[in-house]
Design a protein around this nucleic acid. Structure first.
Length: 668
DNA sequence: AGCACGCCGACT
DNA sequence: GTCGGCGTGCTC
């Protein structure tokens, strides 16, 4: 009955294996999901118990005793552990590092002071004032809520909630959430990074008296551990968080909502463990047999394809709430008229008209800084980044040159270092457009929204305040403006340069451009004033732009999906990208070439030749990559199962780094 | 990744 | 004579 016991633990290390330890009698209560302190090499580490067993393959002389248990009851439940192991398998990543993503830092590091599992922490009670009541629902909203209610009681079903900006997706989330809470269930709400969490969080806090755990990026290690434990202990019944929150254990979890599911920030883009929180959420729903709702005004092509395949049930909110009209989109031909500092005459006239009517105007340009280039007119010298294949961006106000890829920072030269003539900023970023707008509209204060202008804590909040108060009349900014914040008095949106991504090589560029345009267009207009959106372009006859304007996102997506099918791109093919970088280009390429010969791919799986990455040199390292493709997910996964352990054993210099990116977003 | 061991260069 | 560079070997 009480045979010698062993446990298999995950340890935060890049080693692609689990480690077995003896469980001394004092640890007889050990169970999967608890943490143990263990001796690991010459140090102590925290291990997460994945399994307890009566036997081990590991020779006795290698085995060591597990140290004290760090939890009295499992921190992670069976399905949480299954999710971790699924993610480690699917993304072909060491389970220890997956565990490290799932647990807050304080719970996975050995602490000097005696580690004490915190008891249920008191919730920082928000005083119950100003409680919002549910809104009356439109017919479409009501249908969506009913479908979700049926799914919740049947404990199954995945949904794509498609709703234009202002159609009341959040109200659907809130009422579905209320249903779930009323039945004693808990809800996980995922949202992209950026300042979106506070907005969504505020809506939930206004509606529910139930304690809410908010896991956003701004938390200190201590606060994160505390909030995480509120979720894990069941004290919080609503958990709202960004990417990594998808792994939070939540007792009684009965509904998962992924807001703005198309957003690229759900995919971890750097580091080793490149997971998609949206896809992990779908798997979590499957493992726990609970419904998952993906919401977006501009669904990802993957999700649209899943609707076609019947894997997602579409729920559509076709109209804006109340009597609000959809914004009117128009293309402005930059070749056909006078253009003053990037603004077409027609654009300026429209801006003037809207401003005179007392409206606010939003100008969108997805490029920060003053100018993307510093050029010498005499000899053609362009300020380069010393460590990247990139140009330095001019930040005029700070008098600096910055590389947006590696963070290099240097003084802004007045003269060309090569020939001594004057140098000039070429092109325009948000900082320069802000200057132009101040010149063109001296009576209308301009507010700039980008990472540079709103770096200091509280600045974003203050800027939003100035827009709501009406002191700011013109808004100029990057992505930051396209996401989340709603400014009811903005009736005109100007997209300064839609062309940047029209000719990008990345097969997802068109999808992204359409999403950005539709998202930013959603900022315009409200109940009593129809919004107008002007998209400036050198190529207004471009079929992508035309389809988007004539048929909207749905029509655009239908056409673009057909193109993807014809070209065998995702979501009609499955991909993995092996990325490598080294101090020399040859080193990175050599690794990939060896990797390519490790194993012949089975029929249906294609290993492309290795190629240098688009911006091959970044921060002094040379990047290269190799694409693995297959029409079948299972075939691709089968190959990767076999391939990645061999990759990990390839002899390689310490300077070489590699990472496998399953379902990559960027492949060029 | 850590962390140690190990064997060759410039400092008090 | 020793402090310290980073090559390589191991972690149940």
């Amino acid at each position: 009955l009480t045979e010698a016991l062993y446990c298999q633990v995950a340890i935060d290390t890049p080693l692609r294996r689990v480690f077995d330890y003896r469980l001394p009698e004092a640890l007889a209560t050990a169970q999967p999901g608890m943490r143990v302190q263990i001796p690991f090499g010459r140090r102590a580490a925290v291990g997460l118990i994945l399994r307890v067993s009566q036997s081990t393959e590991v020779p006795a002389e290698k085995l060591r005793d597990a140290g004290p248990l760090l939890d009295a009851t499992p921190l992670l439940g069976t399905s949480d552990l299954r999710l971790l192991e699924w993610a480690a398998g699917y993304y072909h990543h060491p389970v220890g590092e997956v565990m490290a993503t799932a647990l807050p830092k304080l719970l996975r590091t050995v602490r000097k002071r005696k580690a004490r599992a915190a008891a249920v922490m008191p919730h920082d009670a928000t005083p119950v004032t100003l409680r919002e009541t549910p809104h009356a629902l439109s017919a479409a909203q009501s249908a969506a809520v009913h479908a979700l209610r049926a799914a919740t009681s049947a404990a199954a079903g995945n949904f794509l909630l498609e709703g234009v900006t202002g159609s009341g997706k959040t109200e659907v989330y809130l009422q579905a959430c209320a249903d779930t809470l009323a039945q004693g269930g808990a809800v996980l709400v995922l949202c992209p990074e950026i300042g979106l969490t506070p907005q969504l969080l505020a809506r939930f806090e206004q509606r529910f008296a139930a304690p809410i755990a908010a896991l956003h990026s701004g938390l200190t290690d201590g606060a994160r551990a505390r909030v995480w434990q509120q979720a894990a202990s069941g004290a919080a019944r609503i958990v709202i968080g960004t990417r990594s929150a998808v792994f939070t254990p939540i007792p009684g979890l009965s509904l998962i909502i992924v807001d703005e599911e198309h957003d690229a920030s759900y995919k971890q883009q750097d580091g080793g463990f490149r997971y998609s929180a949206r896809d992990v959420a779908l798997m979590r729903g499957r493992l726990q047999q609970i419904p998952v709702v993906l919401g977006s005004a501009t669904p990802s092509f993957e999700s649209l394809r899943n609707v076609q395949l019947g894997r997602l049930t579409p729920l559509r909110l076709p109209e804006r709430a109340g009597s609000a009209l959809p914004p009117k989109l128009a293309l402005i031909d930059l070749r056909a008229q006078a253009v003053h500092k990037g603004f077409a005459a027609q654009t300026l006239a429209a801006m003037r008209a809207h401003l005179e009517r007392g409206s606010q105007v939003l100008v969108f340009l997805n490029r920060r800084g003053y100018a993307p280039t510093l050029l010498c007119h005499a000899c053609g010298w362009i300020a380069p980044c010393a460590s990247c294949d990139a140009r330095m961006t001019v930040h005029l106000r700070r008098g600096r040159l910055n590389c947006h890829h590696c963070g290099a920072d240097s003084a802004l030269p007045e003269r060309c270092p090569r020939c001594g003539h004057e140098v000039h900023p070429l092109g325009a970023g948000t900082e320069r457009v802000e200057e132009t707008l101040a010149e063109l509209f001296p009576d209308h204060p301009v507010e700039r929204f980008d990472r540079d202008a709103l770096r200091a804590p509280g600045e974003l909040h203050a800027a939003i305040g100035r827009v709501h108060a009406g002191t700011a009349r013109i808004l100029i900014g990057t992505q930051m403006l396209a996401k989340g914040h709603h400014f009811p008095d903005v009736t005109l949106v100007v997209v300064l340069n839609a062309d940047q991504s029209l000719f990008a090589t990345d097969f997802r560029a068109a999808e992204r451009l359409a999403q950005t345009i539709v998202q930013v267009a959603g900022r315009a207009g409200r109940a009593d004033r129809q919004g107008e959106v002007l998209i400036q372009s050198q190529f207004p006859e471009n079929p992508l732009l035309r389809t988007l304007l004539d048929e909207g996102y749905a029509g655009f997506a239908a056409g673009a999906l057909q193109e993807r099918a014809a070209a065998h791109w995702p979501p009609f093919a499955r991909m993995a990208l092996l990325r490598a970088s080294d101090t020399t280009a040859a080193g990175a390429m050599r690794f990939l070439e060896t990797a390519r010969t490790l194993r012949a791919p089975p029929a249906g799986v294609v290993l492309q030749p290795p190629v240098p990455a688009t911006m091959a040199r970044r921060a002094g390292r040379h990047h290269a990559q190799m694409l693995v493709e297959s029409p079948q997910r299972a075939a691709l996964q089968g190959f990767l199962d076999d391939w990645t352990p061999r990759l990990a054993e390839l002899p390689a210099p310490r300077s070489l780094r590699w990472a496998l990116d399953v379902d990559p977003l960027d492949v060029f």
